[in-house]
Design a protein around this nucleic acid. Structure first.
Lengths: 144, 144
DNA sequence: TTACACTTTAGAATGATTATAAAGTAAGAC
DNA sequence: GTCTTACTTTATAATCATTCTAAAGTGTAA
């Protein structure tokens, strides 16, 4: 099946009309092998470059949040003021390269946390986020 | 030694003048047994309540950033637009209670990550952040 | 083709954070 | 103690990400 048809179906199934803006965004987000990590403004640049026309910031926020709500995107926990999204919605963790401000998925699916402490009573684990912050070898190491 | 003197010394050693604003902030941040997790606006409220006078937002940002740079505070990785700080600067991890938007330190110091993947070449681990997101038992569990 | 609900959009509004520049203050020299 | 100077605080403006609003545009089912 061709990708446009796939995206159209996916949107319709989700109760979202397949508009040309949403299809352009789908093409960029989901027609790729590797997972994609992005902020709204990087996505905006890419959409506008690939489509040769402007797209409203509000549309990008609307669409990305709609996709997140439908489970097609995940928001990522990070220091800093900008929100990052991830096209990989499976349970997984991240490297964050401090030199490049760049996220990558941790490939190893066996990574896990050992010696988990007891939960506060009545509470249940919803999610575990692990971020491994990395940087060039030659920079000063954090103490402790 | 009395705490005021301690804070005065700490500030002077760090090359920061012990002003009354900085001492008020020190008192709130460091005169406590438990670690303290806060945002700028919660800190502002507490400072103003305990001192019976207003403090400028700019001063809070300046001071908190100065303390962070000196290693007396740590910024915390989290989803969302607000920056959280932590008075515990040792290596440790967090629970984040989604119902209360509240952070707590994970007491168990033996918590660790197993099966770490290989680093990208030339890069070194700076820090590992683990956040365990928790919520009441009765709420819907995330799929996958 | 029409009608209507859903979308997109520009621009305004909001909220967190940072910059600015003027007034205030700590601290060492005298 | 007084002066001087560099460091601080402050109110306010500026910036940046994000959300809101309401008007114009568009997909879809009848």
């Amino acid at each position: 099946m061709n990708p446009i048809k796939q995206h159209t179906d996916k949107l319709r199934i989700s109760g979202l009309r397949p508009t040309k803006q949403r299809l352009a965004i789908c093409k960029i987000l989901f027609d790729r092998k590797e997972t994609f990590h992005f902020t709204i403004d990087t996505l905006k640049k890419i959409v506008e470059k690939s489509n040769f026309q402007k797209i409203s910031t509000a549309t990008l926020y609307n669409t990305v949040h709609a996709f997140e709500k439908k489970g097609y995107l995940k928001q990522i926990s990070l220091k800093g003021n900008k929100t990052y999204f991830d096209t990989n919605t499976k349970k997984h963790h991240h490297f964050f390269d401090e030199d490049l401000s760049q996220l990558t998925d941790i490939k190893n699916e066996n990574i896990c946390v050992k010696n988990l402490p007891q939960m506060p009573s009545g509470k249940k684990i919803k999610e575990i986020d692990i971020t491994i912050r990395i940087a060039n070898n030659n920079q000063k190491q954090k103490s402790n």
